[in-house]
């Protein structure tokens, strides 16, 4: 019981930490890292809350998290390539504050 809620709270902390970093950092690679940390936090909450059983934990949540991990990695790959395109187009790996030119 106790570890489940402990890990759920850690997940909440990771989510908030990731959200904070997502907002304050301008560099796109840091934003991608922050998004991944947020995703890890959400997964941790889901799996921790699925462990609130006597015997076997809820397998539906586990299956959803496995699907989520694969989707997260493909989204990360796409985001990284987009970041490289931004860098090629503007010379910087940051989003422009105002439209260029």
């Amino acid at each position: 019981m106790i570890p489940a809620f402990l890990y759920a709270l850690v997940g909440v902390g990771l989510f908030t930490l990731g959200l904070y970093a997502l907002i304050i950092h301008a560099h796109l690679l840091r934003k991608i890292l922050a998004l991944n940390v947020m995703a890890s936090g959400v997964f941790l909450v889901l799996v921790a809350l699925a462990a609130r059983t006597q015997g076997m934990p809820d397998p539906v949540a586990h299956a959803m998290v496995i699907t989520g991990i694969v989707v997260a990695v493909s989204a990360t790959a796409l985001a990284l390539v987009l970041m490289l395109r931004v860098r090629i187009a503007t010379g910087r790996a940051e989003l422009a504050k105002e439209p260029l030119e």
């Binding site: 019981m1 809620f5 759920a8 059983t53 934990p57 809820d58 397998p59």
Partner: peptide, 12 residues
Amino acid sequence: VLSLPSQAPGLS
């Protein structure tokens, strides 16, 4: 999170 019931079998 803490206000959730401590026992929830879910769909298992």
